[in-house]
Protein backbone atom coordinates (compact mmCIF):
# COMPACT_ATOMS: atom_id res chain seq x y z
CA UNK A 1 0.00 0.00 0.00
CA UNK A 2 1.14 3.52 -0.78
CA UNK A 3 0.05 6.85 0.60
CA UNK A 4 -1.43 9.45 -1.66
CA UNK A 5 -2.12 13.12 -1.16
CA UNK A 6 -5.53 14.15 -2.38
CA UNK A 7 -5.55 17.91 -2.90
CA UNK A 8 -8.68 19.68 -4.04
CA UNK A 9 -8.09 22.92 -5.89
CA UNK A 10 -10.75 25.41 -6.66
CA UNK A 11 -11.24 29.02 -7.56
CA UNK A 12 -11.26 31.06 -4.36
CA UNK A 13 -10.40 34.44 -5.84
CA UNK A 14 -12.64 35.19 -8.84
CA UNK A 15 -15.86 37.03 -8.25
CA UNK A 16 -18.16 34.53 -9.95
CA UNK A 17 -16.18 31.47 -9.10
CA UNK A 18 -17.36 27.94 -9.74
CA UNK A 19 -17.98 26.17 -7.42
CA UNK A 20 -19.99 29.01 -5.89
CA UNK A 21 -20.58 29.21 -2.14
CA UNK A 22 -24.07 27.77 -2.75
CA UNK A 23 -22.62 24.86 -4.71
CA UNK A 24 -20.11 24.23 -1.92
CA UNK A 25 -22.98 24.25 0.55
CA UNK A 26 -24.86 21.69 -1.51
CA UNK A 27 -21.74 19.52 -1.72
CA UNK A 28 -21.22 19.24 2.05
CA UNK A 29 -23.27 16.11 2.55
CA UNK A 30 -22.05 14.29 -0.58
CA UNK A 31 -18.51 15.25 0.42
CA UNK A 32 -18.95 13.74 3.91
CA UNK A 33 -20.40 10.58 2.37
CA UNK A 34 -17.47 10.39 -0.04
CA UNK A 35 -14.94 10.65 2.79
CA UNK A 36 -17.00 8.24 4.94
CA UNK A 37 -16.90 5.73 2.08
CA UNK A 38 -13.11 6.01 1.83
CA UNK A 39 -12.81 5.62 5.61
CA UNK A 40 -15.12 2.58 5.52
CA UNK A 41 -12.59 0.89 3.23
CA UNK A 42 -9.90 1.67 5.79
CA UNK A 43 -8.14 3.80 3.18
CA UNK A 44 -8.24 7.14 4.97
CA UNK A 45 -4.84 7.98 6.47
CA UNK A 46 -5.45 11.56 7.58
CA UNK A 47 -8.94 13.03 7.40
CA UNK A 48 -9.69 16.40 5.78
CA UNK A 49 -9.89 19.50 7.91
CA UNK A 50 -11.77 22.69 7.28
CA UNK A 51 -9.22 25.22 6.13
CA UNK A 52 -9.60 28.95 6.44
CA UNK A 53 -10.02 30.44 2.98
CA UNK A 54 -8.04 33.61 3.75
CA UNK A 55 -4.52 32.38 4.48
CA UNK A 56 -1.14 34.05 4.15
CA UNK A 57 1.57 33.73 1.54
CA UNK A 58 5.22 33.98 2.58
CA UNK A 59 7.90 34.81 0.00
CA UNK A 60 11.60 35.44 -0.19
CA UNK A 61 12.83 38.21 2.16
CA UNK A 62 9.96 37.42 4.52
CA UNK A 63 7.41 39.18 2.39
CA UNK A 64 4.02 38.20 3.71
CA UNK A 65 0.82 38.85 1.79
CA UNK A 66 -2.79 38.11 2.58
CA UNK A 67 -4.96 35.62 0.80
CA UNK A 68 -4.41 32.20 -0.70
CA UNK A 69 -1.59 31.63 -3.12
CA UNK A 70 -3.31 32.43 -6.37
CA UNK A 71 -0.91 32.96 -9.25
CA UNK A 72 -3.32 30.67 -11.02
CA UNK A 73 -7.09 30.54 -10.54
CA UNK A 74 -7.11 27.28 -8.58
CA UNK A 75 -6.16 27.66 -4.91
CA UNK A 76 -5.84 24.82 -2.49
CA UNK A 77 -9.29 24.18 -1.02
CA UNK A 78 -8.89 20.90 0.83
CA UNK A 79 -6.42 18.12 1.35
CA UNK A 80 -6.19 14.72 3.00
CA UNK A 81 -4.22 11.50 2.78
CA UNK A 82 -5.41 8.11 1.59
CA UNK A 83 -3.97 4.62 1.20
CA UNK A 84 -4.06 2.88 -2.19
CA UNK A 85 -2.16 0.22 -4.09
CA UNK A 86 -1.49 2.31 -7.14
CA UNK A 87 -2.15 5.60 -8.92
CA UNK A 88 -4.91 3.78 -10.75
CA UNK A 89 -6.74 2.97 -7.54
CA UNK A 90 -6.09 6.41 -6.01
CA UNK A 91 -7.43 8.12 -9.15
CA UNK A 92 -10.53 5.91 -9.05
CA UNK A 93 -11.15 7.12 -5.48
CA UNK A 94 -10.47 10.75 -6.48
CA UNK A 95 -13.07 10.53 -9.24
CA UNK A 96 -15.71 10.24 -6.53
CA UNK A 97 -15.08 13.80 -5.33
CA UNK A 98 -18.48 15.49 -5.46
CA UNK A 99 -17.03 18.98 -6.06
CA UNK A 100 -15.56 17.95 -9.43
CA UNK A 101 -18.88 18.57 -11.16
CA UNK A 102 -18.77 22.22 -10.06
CA UNK A 103 -15.34 22.85 -11.57
CA UNK A 104 -12.95 21.84 -8.78
CA UNK A 105 -9.76 20.02 -9.74
CA UNK A 106 -8.38 17.09 -7.73
CA UNK A 107 -4.65 16.55 -7.63
CA UNK A 108 -3.37 13.07 -6.71
CA UNK A 109 0.24 12.68 -5.57
CA UNK A 110 1.91 9.52 -4.34
CA UNK A 111 4.21 9.77 -1.33
CA UNK A 112 7.60 8.27 -2.13
CA UNK A 113 8.19 5.48 0.40
CA UNK A 114 11.17 6.05 2.69
CA UNK A 115 13.99 3.72 1.65
Amino acid sequence: MNEFLIAIHRDLTSENASPSPEQMQAAIKPFQDWIGGIAAQNKLVAPPKRWDLGGRVVRQNNTVTNGPYAEIKESLGGLFLIRAESYEEAVEIAKGCPVLQYGAVVEVRMAIPAS
Binding site: K29, Q32, A40
Partner: peptide, 25 residues
Protein backbone atom coordinates in the same frame (compact mmCIF):
# COMPACT_ATOMS: atom_id res chain seq x y z
CA UNK B 1 -26.90 7.75 11.71
CA UNK B 2 -25.05 7.75 8.38
CA UNK B 3 -23.39 11.07 9.17
CA UNK B 4 -22.39 9.88 12.64
CA UNK B 5 -20.86 6.71 11.21
CA UNK B 6 -18.98 8.79 8.60
CA UNK B 7 -17.49 10.83 11.42
CA UNK B 8 -16.77 7.79 13.57
CA UNK B 9 -14.86 6.13 10.71
CA UNK B 10 -12.86 9.29 10.08
CA UNK B 11 -11.83 9.20 13.73
CA UNK B 12 -11.06 5.49 13.89
CA UNK B 13 -11.60 2.64 11.44
CA UNK B 14 -13.26 -0.56 12.55
CA UNK B 15 -14.84 -3.28 10.39
CA UNK B 16 -18.07 -3.22 12.39
CA UNK B 17 -18.42 0.56 11.95
CA UNK B 18 -17.75 0.15 8.21
CA UNK B 19 -20.51 -2.48 7.95
CA UNK B 20 -22.97 -0.46 10.01
CA UNK B 21 -22.22 2.64 7.96
CA UNK B 22 -23.10 0.73 4.80
CA UNK B 23 -26.32 -0.57 6.39
CA UNK B 24 -27.24 3.03 7.29
CA UNK B 25 -26.46 4.10 3.71
Amino acid sequence: ILELYNNLLMLEYSPIAALNRTFAL
